[in-house]
Design a protein around this nucleic acid. Structure first.
Lengths: 214, 214
DNA sequence: TAGATTGTTAATCGATTAACAATC
DNA sequence: TAGATTGTTAATCGATTAACAATC
């Protein structure tokens, strides 16, 4: 699926809508932009505008068919078919995220992002498994990533080697990265990075601890 | 420190500036908005505007004194004195985040956010430690949080009990929460929540895997 | 002094909201 | 039909950028 120039602010809300639809499915066949917005924390007009970027999914006077809209959103987000993911850096955080993701994948049939390979530098880890997912040496990235059609990766290596790991992943064909390392990664324009920088988030939250910030 | 009505977009950039200043400290005594912006990935005009919300920290023709600006930013973000944090839900993710934070606190003398208490429901965990940090029963939140002057918390419990855990934390005096559970938490207006929702982030990234999104 | 860079104002850009004709 | 709700346009709001006088 390819739509041009749609803002990331819009894309960020689509998975939230998807989650609401999953909650509602089975209870209601249709949902209005008002109800969907209330549950997602978004104004109804914005819900309609977000969806209208991709097509006309609703019926006047009725609302949106829950299952149909869910299917459409999943197509838009490339979640209609399994997506293979790798994780680089099997420290305690990487290990926990690997397990977290695996559990999610096994429990929820709609969660189609499958972790299929782990990478680490430590020789004692290479060849072992985390919940059935093999740990490879980082040197095997150029081979394993294309072989498994891996397009998405999580980076949980120390800051000083995060760029190096990223370069290897990108060269091997990875198109999107969730980065937990506290550094700004340089990537080509066609690769997308999302930062999950724990210490930046905590330092930001510290601001709101001071006086009353309504 | 209390400034009214400053946008969260501004606050989010302050910890990034802080990180750049730390890199530069020792190498240069002063830094221009141009250089600070380049390293932080922000336009120089925006750097100046962000800082100007809080005071006049620069010198025309010279730039900003690195150590002075760092001190000022740390005061603004309430990072000039130790801040006590709790974590609820010592599963594999909670455990990993606890260790991650502890290591950060021990290594980096400027990282003043100190994890002082862990909470869990499992009786076999209560009374044990993660890197010197005690695990308490969640029932002890009302006592332990005020006793330790805990103002900040990380929530890593399952989705169905996240609101319950949050309510207990808020009642005990917590003012800011980093939430890893995949739910929207309801909190009073004077409490701030930051969401670190792994699956929403991954689902968003999936969008960018499709065709070329420059 | 001359060059550089700030703090601030006005202009621009983009995202959200309100309003409403179309229509189920 | 009458009521409800969409998709879309125009208005509003807020954030970023450009420009520049002040001044180190």
């Amino acid at each position: 699926m390819a739509w041009k120039g749609i803002s990331d602010a819009v894309i960020r809300r689509l998975p939230i809508y998807l989650r609401v639809l999953e909650e509602v499915k089975g209870k209601e066949a249709c949902i209005s932009s008002h109800e969907l917005g209330k549950r997602a924390g978004v104004r109804p007009a914005l819900v309609r505008k977000d969806l209208a970027w991709f097509g006309e999914f609703g019926k006047q006077g009725v609302g949106y068919d829950v299952e149909f809209l869910q299917d459409e959103l999943r197509k838009i987000l490339n979640l209609d078919e399994p997506l293979h993911m790798a994780l680089v850096g099997v420290g305690s955080l990487g290990h926990a995220l690997a397990r977290y993701n695996r559990r999610r994948f096994e429990k929820d049939p709609l969660f189609t992002i499958k972790l299929v390979a782990l990478f680490d530098v430590k020789p004692e880890l290479v060849g072992t498994y985390v919940d059935d997912v093999p740990i490879y040496s980082v040197e095997e990235i150029p081979r394993v990533v294309p072989e498994n059609d891996i397009r998405l990766a999580i980076v949980t290596v120390p800051a000083d080697v995060a760029q190096e790991a990223t370069d290897a992943l990108v060269a091997a064909g990875v198109k999107a990265i969730l980065n937990f390392a506290p550094v700004k990664l340089d990537v080509p324009k066609d690769v997308h990075v999302a930062n999950a920088d724990l210490s930046l988030e905590l330092q930001r939250l510290a601001y709101y601890i001071g006086a009353q910030h309504s």
